[in-house]
């Protein structure tokens, strides 16, 4: 049985829904059942935003992931990654962009935020914004976060890449390809950061 529950987190306007939908569509393309619950409305004005994505070879019942059941959190923002740890399994992966969005009166101490992520047994904390910039697409940090999460998803990278190409097809083949490159660069980076294979085994095949 294949099964993967994940939470995509970030701040309204960071492209969280694009990540979630790309994964969900890739899940459908891979023949899995899919549910993806997302946030629209008020919170999209710079508030905390998250999407629950559930992929399974069996029926997916709840649109929401139960507490302590997620295999993975991927976050566009470091503090937002921590907001959802009550949903993460103790041995789940936390994949986060380290660049903060400080659009609030009192953003907590960034070192404290980073070390709280560092304390999580399985995590990948990286500079998604830098990966995107290097790929010439400063606005594609979300595709970098998706790339960094790819090693932990029960989906072939090629299916995700095909989804990215479809998503950006309307902007021309060159833009689509550049997004795929950002995805691939982050994926390679995550593979290298990730601890030894025994620790890093994904929980997708239970």
């Amino acid at each position: 049985m294949t099964r993967c529950d994940l939470i995509v987190a970030g701040v309204g306007g960071q492209g969280i829904l694009a990540i979630a939908t790309t994964i969900a569509e890739a899940g459908l393309a891979a023949g899995l059942r899919v549910k993806q619950s997302e946030v629209h409305g008020m919170a999209q004005r710079g508030g905390a935003v998250q999407a629950h994505v559930r992929l399974s070879s069996e029926t997916v019942w709840s649109d929401l992931i139960p507490k302590g059941a997620a295999d993975l959190i991927l976050s566009m923002e470091p503090m937002e990654a921590l907001r959802y740890v009550p949903w993460l399994q103790p041995d789940g992966w936390l994949v986060a962009n380290e660049t903060p969005v400080q659009n609030m009166a009192a953003y907590p101490d960034l070192h404290a935020v980073r070390s709280a992520i560092g304390a999580w047994p399985r995590h990948v904390l990286f500079d998604a914004s830098a990966v995107a910039r290097k790929g010439g697409l400063p606005k594609a940090a979300n595709m970098a976060v998706l790339g960094a999460a790819a090693p932990f998803l029960p989906l072939p990278a090629a299916v995700l890449e095909a989804g990215i190409r479809r998503r950006f097809a309307c902007k021309g083949a060159a833009v689509a390809e550049a997004n795929v490159m950002v995805f691939q660069a982050a994926r390679t980076l995550a593979e290298s950061i990730r601890r030894p294979a025994s620790v890093g085994a994904t929980h997708a095949d239970r």
């Binding site: 139960p66 659009n103 907590p108």
Partner: peptide, 20 residues
Amino acid sequence: LGSGAAVAQVVAARPPVLCA
């Protein structure tokens, strides 16, 4: 159904705001 960790104390509320 499961139990997860508590939210770290550093996490602060992020209410919606007017766009810059």
